[in-house]
Design a protein around this nucleic acid. Structure first.
Lengths: 124, 124
DNA sequence: CTGTATCCCTATAGATACTG
DNA sequence: CAGTATCTATAGGGATACAG
């Protein structure tokens, strides 16, 4: 893991870029407790646009993390669900979530200190 | 964790955006086994530009994950090192890294299948 | 050695309108 | 209902030049 140009580090970096985008984690978390239809997801993630939800779901489907099931009725019905692979991702994400919740306060304080110090430097 | 608009989910999402950027994880991993000077980091992460390394380190410093120690000699010397907070992030990142290495093959196969299916659809 | 400053290009994401 | 298409705004990031 010492050489950042090695495949392992690249893999991690690529993965983090994917799930680190603005919507992927929210969608995965939402699908965590069961399958959802397209507009159900929209309602549960109010801030996501139709376009971004579509793109996010397509990427997740392409990566094999989410399955897409079309029921050709009228009106059409599409259900999204985590695959086994997608579910297996929940555990490591949860680890990160735990770290985040435990340390968010420390990070905010560090940011406040840093910004205060920067302001002071400007004033001087 | 059900409501994606709740603070916890936002926190995770924000955190992932931060460490999910192009360089942060590489820098954190590189600093994982000890402090480095600016140009040492550049050499160990050949693909990073001076600008992006500076920005990445500033953000990490601001978040309290990395400490910056200036030695006012000639030439100047600046050492970067993980703080306790930064080190504590290594464990959850490692969990994700493990998942990534274990499943990278499955993801690639899923992508190949998806792309093949898409091509087929175009051909038809 | 360790950065800043500037220019510029591209990728990402939001808004809106339209379609099967 | 579940998308696609298009336009636009912004942010990320590379290259280069310069500075303490």
């Amino acid at each position: 893991m010492k050489d950042p140009s090695n495949p392992v580090c690249r893999t991690i970096s690529t993965l983090l870029s994917r799930i680190g985008d603005k919507w992927t984690v929210l969608v995965v978390q939402t699908l965590g407790d069961g399958s959802r239809r397209f507009n159900e997801l929209r309602r549960e993630i109010p801030s996501v646009s139709q376009r971004m939800l579509t793109l996010t779901l397509r990427n997740l489907e392409r990566d094999g993390l989410v399955s897409r099931t079309v029921t050709p009725s009228i009106p059409p019905r599409v259900d999204y669900e985590l695959t086994a692979l997608g579910k297996s991702l929940q555990k490591p994400i949860c680890g990160l979530a735990t770290w985040a919740t435990e340390n968010v306060e420390a990070i905010h304080q560090a940011q406040a200190r840093f910004d205060a110090a920067a302001d002071e430097a400007v004033a001087a």
